[in-house]
Amino acid sequence: MEIMKIVGVAFVTAVTAVLLKGTKPELSFAVTVAGIIVILLYIVDALQGTLAVFRTIAETTGVENGLLKVLLKIVGVGYITEFGAGILSDFGSNAVADKVALGGKIAIVLLALPVFEGLLTLVKSFLQLV
């Protein structure tokens, strides 16, 4: 049922944005942002359920908790970067959107660094064994 709401809100947002674009372009920007936020809130609610399942899986399989936290953070950063870059490119400032996307990528690399270090120490310990 969730997808019906999302598509419905999306169409209403598009129609309202086109309606306002003729007379007040800046207000159509505000309507688009508001519509996207409403859709994202639906998605975040739906996502909350899946995250609980991920946590239980992590506990049962004994995956180290830090790994899951980094994974969640990366998904969150990607989520917000996509939100910003999408709106910016939609309203013509593609250069700014690219910069936001670049910033998001750098943030994700920064978040993933500890995982790389963990991998390196793991490989080193294997080499010691050999």
Binding site: I37, L41, L47, G76
Partner: peptide
């Protein structure tokens, strides 16, 4: 003002869910 309030709510939700 309304839209900025909504953005703030969205970011708080995301922060709480993803642990950012």
């Amino acid at each position: 003002a309304v839209v900025v309030g909504m953005i703030g709510d969205l970011f708080n939700d995301i922060k709480s869910i993803f642990g950012l």
